[in-house]
Design a protein around this nucleic acid. Structure first.
Length: 865
RNA sequence: GGGCGAGUGGCGGAAUGGUAGACGCACCGGACUUAAAAUCCGUUGGGGGCGACCCCGUGAGGGUUCGAGUCCCUCCUUGCCUACCA
């Protein structure tokens, strides 16, 4: 407002039009001709509860099943517009399926374990369970207010013992199948959360939850063998109706690469160094060897050497580096040469020096790299830096044509040293018996050659790591494993599940599992020998909880088993899953992995849990993502002011559902006015409504009748098509257009036609504005909720206008628009175009070379020169 | 550096290769009102013309096509994801 104090505005006029402060609210105060949302919402909320409208059984025995699911929320206690958008999308889709006659399961639950509850406990002294319970109660109430059609009898809460009982059971099934194992490994460690993290939870070197810089730490931890399913996870993509972007992200994350494992021997020592490479064809170009700083062989190689302390210092320094320092784009390559250590190239017996360097990662491949600086950009950079030899073994194709765009090409005649590595294919040189071979063939030929001598084999590597699931935290499902001095590692017998979280723990935040502070939890009787067994003191990653929750909903209250097989067969897999893209490489990979593992164990009859996936866009506020941590814009005040239906319509109308959107209340007036127009028009014309309109439609419709009926049927068609694609923003505009048509022509049409329009409008709008439409539906004389009303079918013949506008073009440019009967034949259209005055003016004396006629649309006359 | 999206009026956004800007916001005008609010009706991409009308317009440049916002190539901007993966 300050910049309106412009010098060009005369002070006099400002004084002449004093802008009195306006009260914003009165326009929405209840009034005779306004939609009284507060009263309507109270009435129908009570009635839905009383009638159990949204119980799954109410849609049973209708048609085929439909499992509609949205990713369940973390119960942070604060519903924000991102939630509202996501769950409104799911709710509209579920309501549509009910109206289409499907047997619909639409459940909701809580991803209730996790750090915020524990941190709140440390901070405020609440027990996490209490904090969680309160938040759930609050959010459930908010969801009900939003008119979401959840069947609360199917509610799940991952932090409840009757749920995590089965999370532990799932763990044990995977354990028994050899898919869960414990190993000592360098793990991602968040110093702030004081816990290990899965690879997927480290984002740009930062903890996904708290943004602290992650470091590495050696720990004995539980893993799931996700890598064993890499190929299956990739192959399964073929069967999924998912957004291409998510599939691509998963493919990249899994990062399958085909290559070979080749064995280098250590000179003068009985030790092998296997390396993984995708370029066996460059083997003759190896000029040094690189080991990851944490490589287990390092200690053996430097033992007793004079330089050992220096190497150890380097390793220690690398280990202390945070992930972000180590992987930053501009992180300099650093390394040290191991004194008197040489690796023997299996191709030619040549001894090359062994280095350790920060760019070799223990977690990938074998943790060792055969360095070919001439043909690998990283090796090249490192060799340059440390003055290591660069040996050319692949000659680029000798194509001298100027416009060839071969990547990494350079002039082979150049005498100057290379200024970059050549990474493309070519002809092998300096490669002994392989000289002259195409490098692409050389890959398999070298691999085979080494394989015959026991020094190599073809292999496939993935970037995907096994899933680290141990967490040194309290608020999670305890890992159901025991350690007995006599019997070793043992699973907790299934009849002793759940292993319940103890209540007497101290939240020290000291990096030790809080479960260790419990007086009762730590030990129990060994199920095998009866001696003392120690419990595993870690809890599971909360992604384990959410990797199977969709299997639990249909059997949510079943105390005897995780899921009933028949119930499972009826409902699963999920027909439509809605959630954010941010889960592409986390939850959606974990859930697929667990489902596949359970399938292999014969526990579920399908391999893929989510048939169709829809990613809703993110809502931003001031360019920042709305999140559970900050930047919360609560929907409550908007609902207080405009009502829930307006809030639902506005958030859907804001932007296409799969695009991100900047949060804005600008424009909410549009949704509010729209719903009021519907309310006013229907309620003020109720006396005209004829319940039997279908039998009294006029035999000779007047102009208004035809216009209104056409619009009604066109709207049914458009909204139905949009519903299938979840393009709800355009559904709403179509309904606005219908309403505008009723305002313009509703008064002039017959009662039967108006009645059809009122009936159709109420049904089509019901999924978006359920409170308003229930009330209108009742006033139209219906006993049963509009929720159960069937979705209307349109008559295609009625969507076509009698008279249509056709465009005449000359060489693609519009020259005239004329109204013609809809059934005008193409030949007649062409004749009209050729006779058209404006067309002829544009043609001048040029001849018509060609005529394109698109019936119902246009005629394009192509002019000659 | 790599991958995937997105660039259309003052704004949010519509457009199976076929009339660019649906629908809404905002603005402006009219009706109603003592006045306002609310409501109802209408105008609004840019430029030119008294006018019927004409020209230009979907990030930039090429291409395919009778016809391109839409398909192809190059580039620019921007968002998200990912990042030494051997």
């Amino acid at each position: 407002m300050t910049d309106s104090a412009d010098a060009s505005i005369p002070p006099a006029s400002a004084a002449a039009t004093p802008t009195a402060p306006r009260e914003a609210v009165p326009s929405r105060e209840p009034r005779e001709d306004r939609y009284p949302f507060a009263a309507v919402e109270a009435k129908w909320r009570a009635r839905w509860t009383e009638r159990q409208t949204y119980a799954t059984e109410r849609t049973a025995h209708r048609g085929p099943k439909f499992y509609a699911l949205e990713m369940f929320p973390y119960p942070s206690g604060d519903l924000h517009w991102g939630h509202v958008r996501n769950y409104t999308l799911g709710d509209v889709a579920a309501r549509y399926q009910v109206m289409k006659g499907r047997h619909v399961l639409h459940p909701m639950g809580w991803d209730a374990f996790g750090l915020p509850a524990e941190n709140a406990a440390i901070k405020n002294g609440f027990h996490p369970a209490e904090w969680t319970r309160r938040n759930i109660a609050r959010m459930r109430d908010q969801f009900d207010r939003m008119a979401f059609t959840y069947d609360w009898s199917k509610e799940v809460n991952t932090a409840s013992p009757d749920y995590y009982h089965w999370t532990q059971w799932v763990f044990l099934q995977l354990y028994k199948a050899g898919l869960a194992y414990k190993k000592n490994a360098p793990v991602n460690w968040c110093p702030s959360c004081q816990t290990a993290l899965a690879n997927e939870q480290v984002v740009a070197g930062l903890c996904e939850r708290c943004d602290s810089a992650v470091t590495k730490k050696m720990m004995s931890q539980w893993f799931f063998r996700t890598t064993q399913y890499a190929d299956r996870l990739l192959a399964g993509h073929e069967t999924l109706d998912w957004p291409e972007g998510v599939l691509t992200m998963q493919r990249n994350w899994i990062g399958r690469s085909v290559g070979a494992e080749l064995v280098f021997k250590v000179d003068g020592m009985d030790a092998d160094i296997p390396v993984f490479t995708t370029r066996p064809d460059t083997l003759f170009g190896v000029t040094y060897m690189v080991l990851a700083p944490e490589h287990p062989l390092v200690e053996r190689l430097i033992e007793g050497k004079r330089s050992a302390p220096k190497v150890r210092e380097f390793v220690e320094r690398m280990r202390r580096q945070t992930e972000i320092e180590r992987t930053a784009t501009d992180a300099p390559k650093e390394g040290v040469e191991l004194e008197d250590c040489y690796a023997i190239n299996p191709a030619n017996g040549q001894a090359v020096p062994i280095w350790i360097a920060n760019y070799a990662l223990l977690e990938y491949g074998t943790g060792a790299v055969m360095a070919v600086p001439a043909h690998d950009t990283r090796d090249f950079e490192f060799a340059r830096q440390y003055g290591l030899p660069i040996l050319d073994v692949i000659q680029p194709p000798q194509d001298t044509s100027e416009d060839a765009t071969g990547q990494g090409r350079r002039n082979v005649d150049a005498i100057a040293p290379l200024d970059e590595a050549y990474t493309g294919p070519g002809v092998m040189v300096n490669s002994g018996a392989f000289n002259g071979r195409p490098s692409e063939d050389g890959k398999s030929e070298i691999t085979l050659w080494l394989q015959q001598r026991g020094l190599g084999k073809a292999t496939v590597n993935t970037r995907l790591r096994d899933w680290l699931l141990s967490r040194q935290r309290y608020w999670g499902a305890p890992i159901p494993i025991l350690y007995c001095d006599a019997c070793g590692e043992l699973p907790v017998p299934e009849d002793q599940l759940p292993v319940e979280l103890p209540l007497d723990v101290a939240f020290t935040g000291k990096g030790e599992s809080p479960l260790a502070t419990s007086s009762s939890f730590g030990t129990t009787a060994c199920p095998r020998c009866g001696g003392v067994a120690r419990r595993d003191l870690d809890t599971m990653d909360t992604f384990v909880d959410s990797s199977w929750y969709f299997l639990r909903y249909p059997s949510a209250r079943d105390a005897s088993e995780p899921w009933n097989r028949d119930v499972m067969r009826h409902w699963l897999p999920v027909d439509q899953y809605i959630g954010g893209r941010e889960h592409a490489t986390m939850h959606l990979i974990y859930a697929r992995f667990v489902t596949m593992a359970l399938y292999d164990l014969g526990l579920v009859p399908f391999e893929e849990p989510f048939t169709r996936l829809f990613n809703q866009g993110i809502i931003y506020k001031d360019g920042r993502k709305l999140s559970k941590r900050d930047n919360v814009v609560p929907p409550d005040s908007t609902c207080d002011e405009y009502g829930v239906d307006t809030a639902r319509c506005h958030v859907l109308f804001l932007a296409p559902p799969d695009e991100s959107a900047e949060w804005s209340e600008k424009g909410i007036e549009g949704a509010w006015r729209f719903l009021n127009r519907v309310w006013r028009h229907v309620t003020q014309n109720l006396a005209r409504y004829q319940a039997d309109w279908a039998n009294t439609l006029p035999a000779e419709p007047n102009e208004a009748d035809r216009t209104v009926r056409r619009k009604v049927h066109q709207t049914m068609q458009r909204v139905t098509e949009d519903m299938e694609r979840l393009h709800f923003n355009t559904s709403i505009s179509a309904l606005m257009e219908l309403t505008n048509t009723l305002y313009a022509h509703g008064a002039d049409c017959s009662s039967a036609v108006w009645s059809e329009a009122a009936d159709r409008l109420t049904r089509l709008l019901a999924p978006f504005a359920p409170y308003l439409c229930e009330e209108l539906w009742e006033r139209l004389g219906h006993e049963r909720e509009v929720y159960f009303a069937h979705w209307p079918a349109y008559d295609a013949a009625l969507t076509v206008a009698d008279e249509i506008e056709v465009v005449f073009q000359v060489s693609g440019k519009v020259r005239d628009r004329v109204k013609v009967p809809a059934d005008t034949a193409p030949a007649e259209l062409e004749r009209l175009a050729r006779a058209n005055e404006k067309v002829n003016a544009a043609l001048g004396d040029r001849p018509v070379m060609k005529a394109i006629v698109v019936p119902g649309k246009l005629v394009n006359l192509v002019a000659g020169k």
